[in-house]
Write a protein that binds this DNA or RNA. Sequence first.
DNA 1: CTGAGGATTGTTAACGTGTGCATAACATGA
DNA 2: TCATGTTATGCACACGTTAACAATCCTCAG
Lengths: 338, 338
Amino acid sequence: MSDVTIKDIARMAGVSHTTVSRALNDSPLINPETKERIKSIAGSLNYTPNYSAKSLVLDRSYNLGLFFTTLHQGTSSGFLYAALRGVNDVIKDGYNLIVRGIDDYKSFHHVNRKSFDGIIVMSQSAADQPFIEYASQRSIPLIVLNRQIEMEGVWNLIPDDQSGAYRMTEYLLQCGHRRIAIIEGKRGFKSSHARKEGYLEALRSAGIEPEEELFIRGEYDFESGYRAMMRILELAARPSAVFCSSDDMALGAVKAAAERGLRVPDDISVAGFDDTLYSAFITPALTTVRRPIEEMSRAGAERLVALIEKRHVEDHNRMFRTELVIRDSVKSLLEGDE
Amino acid sequence: MSDVTIKDIARMAGVSHTTVSRALNDSPLINPETKERIKSIAGSLNYTPNYSAKSLVLDRSYNLGLFFTTLHQGTSSGFLYAALRGVNDVIKDGYNLIVRGIDDYKSFHHVNRKSFDGIIVMSQSAADQPFIEYASQRSIPLIVLNRQIEMEGVWNLIPDDQSGAYRMTEYLLQCGHRRIAIIEGKRGFKSSHARKEGYLEALRSAGIEPEEELFIRGEYDFESGYRAMMRILELAARPSAVFCSSDDMALGAVKAAAERGLRVPDDISVAGFDDTLYSAFITPALTTVRRPIEEMSRAGAERLVALIEKRHVEDHNRMFRTELVIRDSVKSLLEGDE
DNA sequence: CTGAGGATTGTTAACGTGTGCATAACATGA
DNA sequence: TCATGTTATGCACACGTTAACAATCCTCAG
C-alpha cells in the first residue's frame, strides 16, 4: 500500500515511466488524452510522489525553517504563536514548516542548502548573528524578521519599536504625566534599546530631562516586571506612570502595585508593549503598543517563497507600523478630561 | 561550496566511495587508520551528507510531524508552546520537527510513510479522528496525546482531566461552597466532558444534587468565559463559586465579575483549569489545575522515537496526573480558617 | 607449498524521479 | 516525391547514498 511508483503506473498504462512523469507534472509535451488516462490511473492507485526522490533529482528539500532565538528563555508563547500562524497561513501545501530554536544547535552542521529551501529567522537577540551569517554564507534564501540587520542580500522586516515607544510616551505626557519610569527589556536585545530610545526621544522633545533613577532593567518576563516595579515603588519620589517594555512585565508590575495596596490606574498608571493575547482581558485592560508579529511573519513567508521561486518582489526591506492601543491602565491627570 | 559528496572524498583519499560511506557511518568493516584518514578529510572539506539521497535509499524522511487540531481556533498559545517545547527538547538533532494544524489540510495526500517517519497528534477534538485513522492506516508510527483514543496499535498519553476536576470541586466543597457553577468547555471536546464528569462526581459523592441551572456552556476562550459569567451573575440565586473549565475562561469570568462590581474572591470564588503561564501573575492569582502538557509531550516524543527505532517501551498508554494548584482566587467560607 | 579463512576494499546495482537527446509517426509545402 | 517541421514518446543516464556480493591481500595451519 502506498508504494505505487510511476513505473507501476507506466506498466498499467502501457507507456514509459518518463511519459508518466511528464503527464503528472502537466508537461505540454504529451498528448492530452494519454495525460488524462495516466492521471486517472494514478488517482485510482492513490499514487503519491516520493518526495525524497524528487528532492534528490530536483535539488530541493521542500523544507522551510522557522527559527527562533530560543524556545526556552524569553520567547513568550504569544509571540511564538503569532509568528507560527503568520508563516503557516502562507505556505500551506508544498512546503514543510520546520520549527526550531537556534540555541538548540550544538553545531550548524545540519543547516545547509540541501536541507532547507529557505529560512525565516525570527530574531530576538544579537546572539543570532553567527547563525544568520552561517546561513547567508551557504547562500540559503534567508529572511530575518523582527530585528534590524545590516547584511547584503539578507531581507529584513522589522517593527518600528522606537516610534511605538515614542508614541506611547507621548500619550503618557499628553495625559499629564511628567515623571515616567521605564522598565527596560533584556540587555543586549536590540528591541530593548529601540524602545528606550523612543521613550527618551519623546521626553526630550517635550523638554523633559530623563532621570537615570527612573530607568529600571528588566528581563521581558513576568517576574522581572514584578521585581522592577517593587524597586520603583520604593523610590522616595514615586513616578506617576510606568512604561513597561513588554506586556508580561506590565502584568508583573500591576501585581506588585496591588500587593503594595496601590490600584492601577487610580494610584499609578502602567503601560505595556506587545499587545499579547490576554492583555485586553485582564483587569485593568492594558494600554499597550501592538507589534504586528503575525502580519510581519506572513509578509516574511510570502517574500521567502517568492525568493525561492525567483519571483520579483518590490521591497526587500520594510518597517511595520506599530500601533498605540489605549485601554484602561493609564489615567489622565488633567482636569476636565472625559 | 557545500557540494562535496562522498565521491569527492573518495577521490582525495584514493579509495572507493563505498569505503567512504562505511567509514563515515562507523562501520566495523574498515581499517581504523583509513577510517580516521577519511573522517579528517571529510571534516576539512566541511562535508555534509545529502539527506535527500539518504532518505531515498534508507526509506526514511527524518521528519517528525507535530499536529494540532487547529492553529486558529481554540488552541491557546501556552498550550502550543508547552507542547512544542516538550517535543523539541527530546528530538534535538537527527530529526526535523514539522508543525501543522490538521485543519490546514484540504486533503491528507501529503501525509504518508515516505514523508513522515512518525507523527505526534496533540488532539483536542473528536474532529481529529479522520486524520488519526488515515495516518494509522498508512501504518505511520503514531502517538496521540491529550485526548483518549481507542484504536489498536495507536499509543495514547492523556492527562487525567476527570480526577483533576474532581479534586478541584472537592476542594471548593471543603472550602464550604455548596452551590458551585461550572463553565463548560467547547462542545464535542472530550476534555470538556471529562472535566464536567469530575465536577459532577465530586458533587454527588458529597451528597449534593447538581443543578442544571448552574451548567453554562463556554468555548474555552476569554470572551466565552466573560459571557458565561455574565449569565451566571444574572441568576436569581447566585452561586458562591464558579469552576471554569479553562484558565482563559476564568480570566474572562474575573473580568465580568469586576465589571459588575464584584471582587474575586471576596464576593465570589473562581477556579480555573490548565495553569497557563500567566495564571500565577494576574490579580488575584488563579487557583487552578495543572495539566502536564510539557511532560506529556516529552514522553510522547520519547515513545515515538523508540517506536520508530523499534526499541522496547514498557507502557504504551499512560495517564498523566493533574495537579491542584491553590492560589488566591477561591475563598474559604468556613470560620476560623486562616 | 597449498588451501582455508579473516580482514579490508572494490564493483555494481538499487532507491524513484526528472531530463537531454534520439526516434518515430505524421503532416506540410514546394 | 522528398525535405522539413511538428507532435508524442522512449532510452539512457543522472542525482548521492547504501548494501549485497565479489575480489584481493595476508596469515597461518597442515
